[in-house]
Amino acid sequence: MIVMNQLHPAPQQAMAFFAGGDDEPICMVNLLKFKDKAAYADGSDPDLPGREAYARYAAGVHACIAAVGGTLRFGGAVTGLLIGEIEELWDMVAIAEYPSRKAMLAMVQSPEYQQVAKHRDAGLAGQLNICTKPRAGAAA
């Protein structure tokens, strides 16, 4: 299995994702890896830890998710691995639920999201973003 963290999807990947599917709710599982130090495009805050830059993004993105009818379901630090092996663990896991892929697309295209996204880009080294379908009453 090849695992590659990325900061943004390739254009073809994004087009296929948002064109596919139906109008049902989705949950996005975010496996996040932070930079040691934030890297803002304008060079500001060079000593800020990447985790803190991402915290600025998280503080602003909650309202963006809510504005399209979504909700943050979970967010927490990764503390260990019980099953399997990976070269390097992610730093955090976050799960956001959206009413549909269209709602998620509307959010990432909104001016409000674009305003806070700079903190995401500054703080993240990369991530995996996994789409799931929520199921009422489901358990692992």
Results as ranks from 00 to 15, higher is better:
residue 66 A to K: 09
residue 75 G to R: 15
residue 122 A to Y: 13
residue 121 D to R: 13
residue 40 Y to D: 04
residue 108 V to K: 08
residue 65 I to V: 15
residue 51 R to G: 00
residue 84 G to C: 02
residue 105 L to N: 10
residue 103 A to I: 01
residue 76 G to R: 14
residue 119 H to Y: 11
residue 57 Y to G: 11
residue 31 L to F: 15
residue 85 E to M: 06
residue 28 M to S: 07
residue 9 P to G: 12
residue 111 P to W: 00
residue 98 Y to N: 04
residue 100 S to E: 05
residue 98 Y to S: 10
residue 22 D to M: 02
residue 113 Y to F: 14
residue 132 T to P: 05
residue 18 F to I: 01
residue 66 A to E: 14
residue 20 G to C: 01
residue 74 F to V: 02
residue 121 D to V: 08
residue 82 L to W: 08
residue 35 K to H: 13
residue 20 G to P: 03
residue 87 E to W: 02
residue 52 E to Q: 15
residue 35 K to P: 00
residue 81 L to A: 15
residue 28 M to I: 11
residue 46 P to S: 10
residue 33 K to S: 15
residue 123 G to A: 08
residue 94 A to N: 14
residue 51 R to N: 04
residue 25 P to M: 04
residue 27 C to P: 01
residue 47 D to Q: 12
residue 15 M to L: 13
residue 40 Y to K: 10
residue 59 A to Q: 13
residue 64 C to E: 05
residue 84 G to N: 04
residue 39 A to R: 14
residue 13 Q to R: 12
residue 20 G to Y: 04
residue 31 L to S: 13
residue 10 A to Q: 15
residue 18 F to D: 02
residue 101 R to M: 03
residue 20 G to A: 12
residue 81 L to I: 05
residue 124 L to P: 10
residue 86 I to H: 11
residue 11 P to D: 04
residue 58 A to W: 07
residue 97 E to Y: 02
residue 27 C to Q: 14
residue 99 P to W: 10
residue 70 G to F: 03
residue 98 Y to A: 07
residue 129 N to W: 08
residue 101 R to W: 09
residue 53 A to V: 05
residue 54 Y to L: 07
residue 51 R to D: 07
residue 109 Q to T: 06
residue 11 P to V: 05
residue 74 F to K: 06
residue 76 G to F: 12
residue 25 P to Q: 06
residue 83 I to G: 01
residue 21 G to L: 03
residue 32 L to S: 11
residue 61 V to K: 10
residue 63 A to K: 05
residue 72 L to W: 02
residue 74 F to A: 15
residue 65 I to D: 03
residue 47 D to T: 11
residue 10 A to F: 12
residue 121 D to W: 09
residue 15 M to K: 15
residue 48 L to A: 08
residue 82 L to C: 10
residue 133 K to I: 06
residue 97 E to H: 03
residue 16 A to N: 11
residue 120 R to T: 02
residue 89 L to G: 08
residue 89 L to I: 02
residue 21 G to Y: 07
residue 22 D to A: 11
residue 107 M to N: 03
residue 10 A to S: 14
residue 68 V to W: 02
residue 54 Y to G: 10
residue 93 V to E: 06
residue 75 G to K: 15
residue 114 Q to G: 02
residue 36 D to K: 12
residue 27 C to I: 00
residue 72 L to A: 13
residue 103 A to E: 05
residue 46 P to A: 06
residue 28 M to Y: 05
residue 59 A to G: 10
residue 88 E to M: 04
residue 125 A to K: 13
residue 118 K to N: 08
residue 99 P to V: 06
residue 46 P to T: 01
residue 90 W to Q: 09
residue 60 G to I: 01
residue 97 E to A: 05
residue 94 A to C: 14
residue 91 D to V: 07
residue 79 T to N: 14
residue 69 G to D: 03
residue 66 A to Q: 10
residue 61 V to I: 10
residue 89 L to R: 14
